[in-house]
């Protein structure tokens, strides 16, 4: 019963970017976690970068 609701909530978070940092950490752990790699960004630093990048280029239409 709660599964569809959980899934819906996950989609909403993903759509809005609410879970972007968690996804970044997961991506980091999977691809860049080898020894000697720089530590992952903090939540605040990641969000800055993510937001600045999101708004370059045409993102909204008529």
């Amino acid at each position: 019963m709660t599964r569809p609701l959980t899934l819906f909530w996950q989609r909403i978070r993903q759509l809005s970017g609410d879970d972007a940092y968690e996804r970044y950490l997961a991506h980091y752990a999977e691809h860049h976690a080898d020894a000697g790699a720089p530590a992952p960004l903090t939540r605040a630093a990641f969000f800055k970068q993510w937001q600045d990048q999101k708004w370059t280029g045409i993102k909204r239409c008529c």
Partner: peptide, 25 residues
């Protein structure tokens, strides 16, 4: 690359795409 190229659930992409195309026009 975890940033601009990211395989994403199709409903999420649909939401992003619709929000981007639908404006006041």
């Amino acid at each position: 690359n975890g940033r601009d190229y990211v395989p994403t659930n199709r409903w999420v992409v649909f939401g992003h795409h619709f929000a981007a195309i639908a404006g006041p026009g």
